[in-house]
Design a protein around this nucleic acid. Structure first.
Lengths: 223, 223
DNA sequence: CCTTGGTAAATTACTGAGAGGTCACATCCA
DNA sequence: TGGATGTGACCTCTCAGTAATTTACCAAGG
């Protein structure tokens, strides 16, 4: 299906004196294979959806960022909800796998949150807004994107739940609601850190992890 | 301006055999003074905007919840952005005042977050979604609602900043970025708790505060 | 080597629905 | 009567979604 033939697509894109083409910017193919275009569209959509939310994001704007027109998005992804769902299906498993790997590498109890955060930052370093595609409170209830996001969040949060529940049980707390609330506080903390990271583009994933360690140290000894 | 005259408005609303009116549900006044209607609209708008976000919320739906038609909303608030701004101007100062009062009553350093949270939960108990009107990441950049929300958040966050900065400095950390990040983590924690509270309507503000205390205790001694 | 058809990659131009916003008019109370 | 409260109908514009068409590439076949 992929039939990836060219190493790097020519993509004159914008050049007025189009290379081998007579008319600059006409209809026809630009030599970009479908698989590659899908990746480009997905990347642009992750950013737009993450930045503005499902409702405020516009298909035309996503197409414009890619350097393509709307019908391409619809031939490749069917609908706005289809594209959003594809975004969720793209970033969800990647986050889940990264977190699973971080947890499986068996850090000590105390360093586990740090390891998970490092995995999250590492996964999001080139698409930081993608986090908020998964954690968008404004998705229309029961829509396809809502269900997809819910499913993938459950997978990610399940890992968090394991850690937080163990922590509470170690203190003799078996309240299921407490565990659920603490899980939410954890994902909320991750959201806050990712949101802050977006506002500081110059910082690397490693910078963020280091900062987290410093904050935890301060809060644990102080407070 | 208020001229609140009636103790409780009659509001037949929906009753086919309207009380004293010939035509059921016609045009004319329903005896609800402007100030009261504005409160009703504001309450409905806070819920709708908080639940669905600025873009996905619809003026028609807000009007329907109040039992009124769209032109009323525009007569009273001018525009969608005007209504959103009014929501922000309504909840922002209330939250700020509550937090200020909680901090001014001088709890010990350690109990300060708990006191602030109690104030927040108390303020939001009848309009929990309102928090997300203030903290909506999807507001169109530089729009009037965005600026208003930013301003009020700054006021609320400023109080948080005082606490977090003091905490870090006590540990010998003077990094301004660390303080800013910790402030965001704090507001993210509040957001997470409020979001979780929305999913558990049966819990009171007091329940939430107690739960917070339990979680903090577990996390501090453990982890 | 050059046509030639088939397929993949794109675009232009359009439609339709829904939501923001407005206007003229209706009703009620003082 | 006049101002406050309120509605029905309408306008307009954006945006999701679609149909028809156009161009480029690629492989055979003459």
């Amino acid at each position: 299906m992929t039939t990836a033939r060219a190493s790097a697509a020519p993509e004159p894109s914008g050049d007025g004196t189009a290379g081998r083409r007579g008319r600059g910017g006409g209809a026809g193919t630009k030599g970009v294979p479908r698989a590659l275009r899908e990746e480009q569209i997905l990347a642009a959509a992750l950013e737009e959806f993450g930045r503005h939310g499902h409702a405020a994001a516009s298909m035309a704007e996503i197409a414009r960022r890619v350097g393509v027109t709307k019908p391409m998005l619809y031939t490749y992804f069917g609908s706005k909800d289809g594209l959003y769902t594809a975004c969720v299906d793209h970033i969800g498993p990647r986050l889940r796998a990264a977190i699973e790997e971080a947890m499986a590498s068996g850090p000590e109890r105390e360093a586990l949150p740090r390891a998970v955060l490092a995995a999250v930052f590492d996964t999001l370093q080139d698409c930081r807004h993608a986090w908020f595609v998964l954690y968008d409170r404004t998705l229309p209830h029961d829509s396809a994107p809502w269900q997809a996001a819910r499913r993938h969040r459950a997978a990610v949060d399940g890992l968090a739940a394991a850690g937080t529940a163990a922590l509470l049980q170690a203190e003799g707390n078996d309240d299921a609601l407490d565990a659920d609330a603490l899980k939410h506080v954890w994902t909320g903390t991750v959201s806050a850190l990712v949101g802050w990271w977006i506002a500081h583009p110059e910082l690397s994933a490693g910078d963020m992890t280091a900062r987290w360690s410093r904050l935890v140290a301060a809060v644990r000894t102080g407070a």
